[in-house]
């Protein structure tokens, strides 16, 4: 077992994990933060996207021990209590989700884009979603949601 500690959504957390524990399993199983999903488990789908030290990454493709000492942000830390984050609100307003399975990854990915390219238009949003797969809503409303979310965040 290896001792790991990190800051998840602003809180210090720690645990002892086998070295081969994935970050996503540490989040979901040890911390019970089940908003981060595992879809494909082969680094393709993006349902597991979280922020590691401010950048979006796939938590199914890194070890928990690699995140030792890191700042992690998951979907659970995005809303302000009961008040949805503007990006979440935009997904609700624009019907950017249907079953919702991919949504946590979509939102975390979108927030990274909003940070890195606040002027992103549809073309940039679609290119950015290369690593986030939705199998039911379709991308039209997701792209519209992210565009609206980015605008709303700038206001």
């Amino acid at each position: 077992m290896v001792a790991v500690s990190m800051i998840v959504n602003g809180k210090d957390v720690s645990g002892d994990v086998p070295a081969n524990t994935l970050l996503v399993d540490f989040l979901r199983t040890t911390l019970r933060l089940t908003g981060t999903h595992v879809g494909c488990d082969t680094s393709q789908c993006g349902a597991c996207v979280v922020h590691v030290n401010g950048s979006s990454m796939k938590s199914c493709s890194m070890l928990a021990v690699e995140a030792d000492g890191a700042q992690i942000a998951t979907i659970e830390g995005v809303a302000d209590g009961e008040k949805l984050h503007p990006m979440q609100e935009a997904f609700r307003e624009h019907h950017g989700l249907q079953c919702g399975f991919c949504t946590p990854g979509m939102v975390m990915s979108a927030l990274d884009l909003a940070e890195k390219n606040p002027n992103a238009g549809d073309k940039e949003i679609r290119a950015w979603l290369e690593g986030n797969i939705c199998r039911c809503t379709g991308y039209q409303n997701i792209v519209a949601s992210i565009g609206a979310g980015i605008k709303s965040m700038a206001e």
């Binding site: 993006g46 979006s56 990454m57 493709s61 290369e130």
Partner: peptide, 9 residues
């Protein structure tokens, strides 16, 4: 290369 999350890591 890959996608944005892969490029970030």
């Amino acid at each position: 290369i890959g996608d944005p999350q892969v490029r970030n890591r």
